[in-house]
Simulated assay, not measured.
Amino acid sequence: MRLLAALLGAILILVTASPVDAAPSGRTVRLARTVGVDITVPASVNLGSGFTGGTLTRQLGTVEVRDSRGQVNPNVWVATVAATVFVTGAGGAQRTIANDRVSYWSGPVTRSTGGGTLVPGQPTSAQAVTLNVVREAFRKTAGNGNNTVAWVPTIRIAIPAGVVGGTYRGTITHSVT
């Protein structure tokens, strides 16, 4: 009986992009406000399951910024990240995991071309930030255009002890300016 109670408390976390953002290739491209700079992110990620009162930690997948502005100066940009509340159920039966329980760290550059000074927002888990407000994920502080940078951020969700079991969905949004 005790095992059954633990299984009923399991939570599946699924991060999704809104349907209008999902690209046929399974990736989402969000164009930035800065002409010549865009960002590509995973369209949908299943972060797995965890137990109430536990912590779920998973990599989100590759995020890539492509800067095709050439020799325009200054050639800098800032990538940001934020999350919605994670929700399960509908109407009056809806339950949530607050976005202040969702932590993020960018990690280091995993791939880059073209040079420039690239600065991760949170190089290690020790610098993890909660996603209840817009946070800096990565920054290019100097260098020419025509380059790319990729990183694989990690998400950590502190699952509340009193939350109901279910499939929770939320959106983690990256953008670049």
Rank of each mutant, 00 (worst) to 15 (best):
G170P: 07
A137F: 03
R33W: 06
R135P: 01
S103Y: 15
W77E: 09
R111P: 00
D100K: 11
T177A: 14
T173P: 00
S25C: 06
T55S: 14
T130F: 04
L12W: 01
Q94F: 04
I159D: 02
G107C: 09
V133P: 00
S18K: 10
A23T: 12
L4Q: 11
G91R: 05
R111M: 11
T154L: 08
L4W: 05
I13L: 15
I159A: 02
G170K: 05
G145W: 07
G114N: 10
N132T: 07
P123M: 06
V29S: 10
T62D: 12
G165C: 08
A90P: 00
N146H: 09
V29N: 12
G162D: 13
Q127I: 00
G70A: 03
Q59W: 01
A158I: 14
Q59H: 11
T130C: 01
S112L: 02
T124Q: 04
W77A: 05
G53K: 06
T40D: 12
N132L: 01
V149A: 14
V41C: 04
D100L: 06
R27N: 15
V129T: 12
T34W: 01
S18G: 08
G54I: 02
R33V: 07
V164P: 05
T171S: 12
L131V: 10
A6G: 08
G9V: 01
A82K: 14
L8D: 12
A22M: 12
R27K: 15
T141R: 06
T96V: 15
V41F: 00
R69V: 10
G70F: 06
P120M: 06
V72T: 13
E136S: 13
N75L: 03
W151S: 08
L47H: 04
P19D: 13
P19E: 13
T124I: 03
Q94I: 11
P123V: 14
I157L: 13
V76K: 12
L14Q: 09
V45W: 01
V15S: 11
A6I: 10
A10Q: 09
G115V: 09
R30H: 10
I172K: 03
P42W: 10
L8T: 07
G36D: 08
T124H: 03
G107R: 04
G26C: 09
G26V: 09
T171L: 09
N146R: 07
I13Y: 04
A22L: 13
G165H: 06
T88D: 09
L7V: 14
V102E: 01
